[in-house]
Nucleic acid binder design. Structure first.
Length: 451
RNA sequence: GGCCCUAUCGUCUAAUGGUUAGGACAUCGGCUUUUCAAGCCGGUAACCGGGGUUCGACUCCCCGUAGGGUCACCA
């Protein structure tokens, strides 16, 4: 049954229906199609399957286009099925006149609201088998499919007819789609045979599953199945593609972090998994963080600045200092807003407010020790010139004393005086960011609080 | 329920008849300029069950079991 298209240019298509926001499963289908096309110098076609006029919405089509653009999956051709009805009509007419399809009178249309007449495909009732590139030989007995409906009327084709006609006319060589389409394949092959179209190669990729091992569905999981949710969360397009590629595929090496170009290079159909894979936001966060590390520091600072300036009166110079400690604490840009909301960054912009008792290290018996240490630290810091408040210099100045008196006893009060929080970066980093003047002021305030 | 697909640590996966069953995420310990975060080091953790085939099965075959997909005038 295999068609002789080995030497032809590879042409694939991503064919979503605009009946909802771009779904993660669709994104991965698009990704595999895109990678396969680009790797083989083939064509990647985007085809909007909007034959269902009731459910198709322009905003969903726009969401699909926006998502693909964001991911960087450029398409070579674009089609909208709603604009190709003349073509389907031509095939439908031919099918009917050839006796391979017929207009069927339906009963009980009055109660169900369904049409009195539809076009049914005349099922030859035979066994259909095809070789799936991922699963191997699959056989169906089409008898149970009966004479299935291929169009509501000569003007209104349905899914199976439109798909087969388009794949034929567009010269699709490989149909790469979700496993949920396996059972649609025999119907489509039947139609291919009826219109004299060659059979494309098929590759049915496993589904993306939820924690309960069920298909990721909008109904059950809401916005988390939509790409737009992750765009909003500040994930990187390359990380998204990277993580999704790892769901149901592996490169055959230990490499896990890939740019899109590296993915195009490494991709292979043979390495696609057969079983469904559970989506893990945890691992995706890790992949995103790895991609974050690949970005030049100044670019990261730029992104952070864009977000920070909405909350604090700050400038690029300040953000560049803050950037490394923020990067350590986020896995996507969306986490920055969370950090700000949790007031984790507030003390960089405004003097902290806290109880004097918090300054005391848990190992010290009384706050007098805290006071002594803070005072002495202040004097040590005083020797460092204004512009040279680097991590190294402050460390050099304080460390001997800290080791002598106990690191916790010296360093904790210092850190707390600067941040006012139980959790923060270490005092040396804090001093470097705050600068000498602010550091000295905050230590003096701490000393006053103790009295 | 019919038809179809699938089955290795909690999760994503490697292994293409011979391995102490490997890696990654998560988790748990430890380390670090004694809070976090990040980083580094280490630990726990898997071949669904039963039959074959074979000198030898995670790997091949069969039967179970479990999970999933699909059964529209949606796509």
């Amino acid at each position: 049954m295999k068609t002789e298209n080995k030497n032809k240019k590879i042409i694939v298509r991503f064919a979503p229906s605009p009946t909802g926001f771009l779904h993660l499963g669709s994104v991965r289908t698009a990704l595999f199609n895109y990678l396969f096309a680009r790797q083989n110098g083939g064509k990647f076609i985007l085809r909007i399957e909007d034959t269902d006029k009731e459910r198709s919405k322009k905003e969903y089509e726009e969401d699909i286009a926006r998502g693909l653009k964001w991911l960087g999956f450029s398409s070579d051709e674009f089609y909208r099925q709603s604009e190709r009805e003349d073509t389907y009509k031509k095939y439908l007419k031919k099918l009917v006149s050839d006796g391979k399809a017929y207009v069927s009178k339906e009963s009980d249309s009055a109660e169900t609201g369904k049409r009195a007449e539809v076009i049914r495909f005349k099922n030859p009732n035979k066994k259909i088998s095809f070789s799936d590139m991922i699963r191997g030989e699959i056989e169906f007995d089409t008898t149970e499919l009966k004479d299935f409906i291929i169009a509501k009327s000569i003007e209104e084709p349905l899914f199976h007819l439109a798909v087969v006609v388009d794949d034929f006319e567009m010269g699709i060589t490989h149909v790469i789609r979700g496993e949920d389409h396996i059972s649609n394949t025999p119907r489509q092959i039947l139609i291919q045979e009826a219109i004299g179209a060659p059979n494309p190669f098929y590759a049915h990729i496993p589904l993306i599953l939820d924690k309960d091992r069920a298909k990721l569905s909008k109904r059950k999981h809401g916005e988390k199945v939509s790409l737009s949710y992750y765009i909003k969360k500040g994930y990187l397009p390359a990380a998204m593609a990277n993580y999704l590629s790892l769901l149901g595929w592996n490169p055959g090496t230990a490499q896990e972090i890939f740019t899109l170009d590296e993915l195009i290079e490494a991709f292979s159909m043979e390495k696609i998994q057969k079983g469904g894979a559970i989506f893990s936001e945890e691992k995706m966060k890790w992949v995103n963080k790895e991609h974050l590390k690949l970005i030049p520091p100044d670019d990261i600072a730029g992104e952070i600045y864009k977000i920070m300036k909405n909350f604090y009166d700050t400038d690029m110079e300040c953000v560049k200092k803050l950037s490394p400690i923020i990067l350590d604490r986020i896995s996507s840009f969306g986490d920055i807003a969370d950090l700000i909301e949790a007031r984790e960054l507030e003390y960089f912009f405004k003097k902290p407010d806290y109880e004097a008792n918090s300054l005391k290290w848990k190992g010290d018996s009384d706050i007098e020790t805290t006071k002594t240490n803070l005072k002495y630290a202040l004097s040590l810091l005083g020797d460092i010139p204004e512009g040279q408040f680097t991590v190294d210099n402050t460390k050099k100045a304080l460390f001997g004393y800290a080791e002598q008196k106990g690191k916790g006893s010296v360093l904790w009060p210092l850190r707390f005086a600067l941040s006012g929080r139980d959790k923060s970066p270490d005092p040396f980093t804090l001093m470097n960011i705050l600068g000498k003047k602010e550091t000295v002021e905050r230590i003096k305030i701490a000393l006053q609080k103790i009295q």
